[in-house]
């Protein structure tokens, strides 16, 4: 076990510019591109067959078609994003709909929130979050990136955007949110990755603090 870090003689490293380095969480480096990381093939669901579902613990649901979703108020979001594979990209620009907006509309139809959620996607991907990590202006259903429709490789037509956590929590190709009474670990969370994934606490893998 390494109690003291081993100094790599002659290693200088490449720090981000002043003012930017403070925005790079521990163990991350600044990336200017937008790498693609997915566990399987990219699904392609036509917008005419796409919908988004919020489902309460008791089974009450609310569904939006693509057009219904687009009719809700859009927000422009500029945030830094952090992938557990070590890259951080600063000032990414997204367009989407706040999860608060969806939850508010659903509440009016009797779809109640719960302490946890599982987001689920085309292709079978899932990820779990405490509802607190979505509520209060912290999460969006994003369908625009950098002024253009979100590319399928990056999760289009729509992905969850939870920029304050490692990016695997921002489920690509998202199709719905299931509220759950208890925490139910998702795809990466049962495959060795941390349950919550706060980049500033470096919660990468199962067992990290």
């Amino acid at each position: 076990m390494a109690d003291e870090p081993i100094i790599s003689r002659g290693f200088r490293g490449r720090r981000a510019a002043a003012g930017r380095q403070s925005r790079i969480p521990p163990g991350q480096y600044e990336e200017r591109d937008f790498p693609v990381l997915s566990a399987g093939p990219t699904p392609h669901t036509p917008l005419s067959k796409w919908d988004f579902t919020l489902r309460a613990v008791d089974g009450a649901t609310m569904k939006w078609t693509w057009d219904e979703l687009q009719a809700l108020p859009h927000e422009n979001i500029t945030r830094d994003i952090h992938c557990v594979t070590k890259w951080t990209k600063l000032d990414t620009v997204w367009e989407g709909i706040s999860v608060d907006t969806l939850v508010g509309a659903a509440a009016a139809r009797g779809v109640q929130t719960a302490p946890f959620i599982v987001a689920y996607s085309d292709g079978g991907y899932t990820t779990n979050l405490p509802f607190d990590d979505l509520a209060g202006g912290k999460a969006w259903i994003a369908f625009g990136y950098d002024g253009k429709p979100l590319h399928p490789e990056h999760g289009g037509p729509a992905r969850l955007l939870v920029p304050h956590l490692y990016f695997w929590k921002s489920a690509k190709w998202v199709r719905g949110i299931q509220f759950t009474a208890h925490n139910e670990p998702g795809f990466w969370e049962v495959n060795g990755y941390h349950d919550r994934g706060d980049p500033w606490r470096e919660q990468r893998y199962t067992g990290d603090p």
Binding site: I7, S8, F11, R15
Partner: peptide
Amino acid sequence: DVRLTAEDGYQAQR
């Protein structure tokens, strides 16, 4: 994950 530490304490991982 591999971690390098520079003499001033700066660290990088890949």
